[in-house]
Write a protein that binds this DNA or RNA. Sequence first.
DNA 1: ATTAGCACTCCGGGTCGGTGAGTGCCATGC
DNA 2: GCATGGCACTCACCGACCCGGAGTGCTAAT
Lengths: 339, 339
Amino acid sequence: MSDDRRLDVLRAIVEDYVQTQEPVGSRVLVERHALGVSPATIRNDMAALEEAGFIAQPHTSAGRVPTDKGYRMFVDRLSTIKPLSSPERRAIQQFLADAVDLDDVVDRSVRLLSQLTQQVAVVQYPSLRRSALRHLELVPVGDTRLLVVIITDTGRVEQRTLELDAPVAEHVVPELRARLNAAVAGRRLVDLPEPLEQMALAFAAEDRPLVHRVVRVVEDTLAEATEERVVMAGASHLARSGTDFSLTIRPVLEALEEQVVLLRLLTEMAEDTAGVTVRIGHENQHAGLAETSFVATGYGGDGEALARIGSLGPTRMDYAGTIASVRAVARYLSRILAG
Amino acid sequence: MSDDRRLDVLRAIVEDYVQTQEPVGSRVLVERHALGVSPATIRNDMAALEEAGFIAQPHTSAGRVPTDKGYRMFVDRLSTIKPLSSPERRAIQQFLADAVDLDDVVDRSVRLLSQLTQQVAVVQYPSLRRSALRHLELVPVGDTRLLVVIITDTGRVEQRTLELDAPVAEHVVPELRARLNAAVAGRRLVDLPEPLEQMALAFAAEDRPLVHRVVRVVEDTLAEATEERVVMAGASHLARSGTDFSLTIRPVLEALEEQVVLLRLLTEMAEDTAGVTVRIGHENQHAGLAETSFVATGYGGDGEALARIGSLGPTRMDYAGTIASVRAVARYLSRILAG
DNA sequence: ATTAGCACTCCGGGTCGGTGAGTGCCATGC
DNA sequence: GCATGGCACTCACCGACCCGGAGTGCTAAT
């Protein structure tokens, strides 16, 4: 049995179906691809592929459609890398380089990726937990409030307001600011508790409560679940014309509006740090995403990724192109953040 | 001619149509509303209303549907205010009060409003231009870069990185920071140029270039077009089941993804500061929004609004309820920001 | 192992009446 | 002069029906 040709047939089916969005039959298959055999032969192969679960027919006497398993095989073994053209690369780089601050970088990235893939793009902000601290700022507000501002080396800024019982002693704030910064600058979250503990000891007993509260806020902010921010763009691509997919658009939009779902989507793909991860159809846990695929990778950080970026579309998507785009944007994004 | 009854009929048509989403005929009208006359009479009134352009029929021998003009009349003269229940109010208040910083406040507001109205919600960040400055922070990064952080009294934070030609002189940064803050604290953008000018004079000539560059960055940031940030939530409500509206979903989503369009939508309604503004169907400039209505109002600031918040849905929406929700969220939002 | 031939299935689109909701108009009544 | 009952008319909608075409699976021949 010519196993090779069967895989060729599978590849051809996936490629045709992705392009035409219509079940593909044996005749058009031999016409459009140089398979060198007759439709009847293809039919036999198709029967075998169906038996093996790679393709299915929507109804008797219709062409074949790839199953999730078929797409899986396609991305794992059949699809070839599709490098971006060099003008494309330059355009990406330029567009991202014009960003003015982190919000802008993230915003531009997500729009760019959505534009490139013609799908929904998702970008996670650099994790606070895994970033290093660049600066801590304390700003007294009125008498009894203290604004704590945290700036990371990726440019991310978080702020929390602290309500105090008593007015702050004048001299404490500058000293605390100085010592805090000395203690945290350049360190990552995991390395923080001890230096902060040490630092607190340097203060007079009467100032300790304040110091501890500030330390507490900093630690909480960095550890909080809310630290994980995600942005999305390109939802309109879900309503691409000429697709029954629009029937399923509601649950998909709903899923995408739940930060929790998005985060799980991104973080569940965390194992494979260097490469690109692909989740196809039902491989996604969320029910609303059963007819979508998600392509993601990490960015920032050397070795361990700072955060993730991905693209979501119908299972019948251009995997090669999407993978290439996701990878490219992630690469330039990393470069910007490191620069 | 009983003009009053005609308006009653119009009101009845709008209310019925909003509820059922189906063209409403003369029979069901007299059945569902206590109009005290026969269908034939209603039919005469309907003919008059159609003549006047308030209603239309999709095709001969179908019921009537309100036109944009009909909705306009309805919101201007016919709809009654629908106050929120007091548990609802408490829930809103509580939900917003739990917010941890400005991003969180805005995020919660937009989600809340989308939840309340079951439509798309849009919230604009408090304008930098109209806010007062709370604090300016300068953080040296490496030798030749300076991070400028701007914090407003609404809690908004903006940051810009400044690339310098030469290493910064050690002593300049603390002094500049102190003087800058003295100059700007509590002032609004329009009041800034002069004090900043004054301040710069206090520095030695050799430090002037640096000082001027920092001043420049601050002023630019506050004046920039990109200062206007808008967030959106509830797009999934656009795909509400059982509506041909889903055919038009694409252009609407596209419009909503353009910051520019959103901003124009919000700012074009700026005249009426205290009340709620409603734009119906074709009154919206953007072509993709011809079948939607937008309800917006300002929030924050006394007198002049700091920013705007609104809700967008199909023209056949519950105007009274939407107006009430938008107003309520805006009110509590203002309160939080002032607190 | 491949292929030509063939019978079979079933989707999609088109046609065709029947039904019912809704209208417009007219003649009548208060 | 306004409201009303009656009535003919118009369409959209729905189900039944039919037909063509695409695609398959099977079998027999190479």
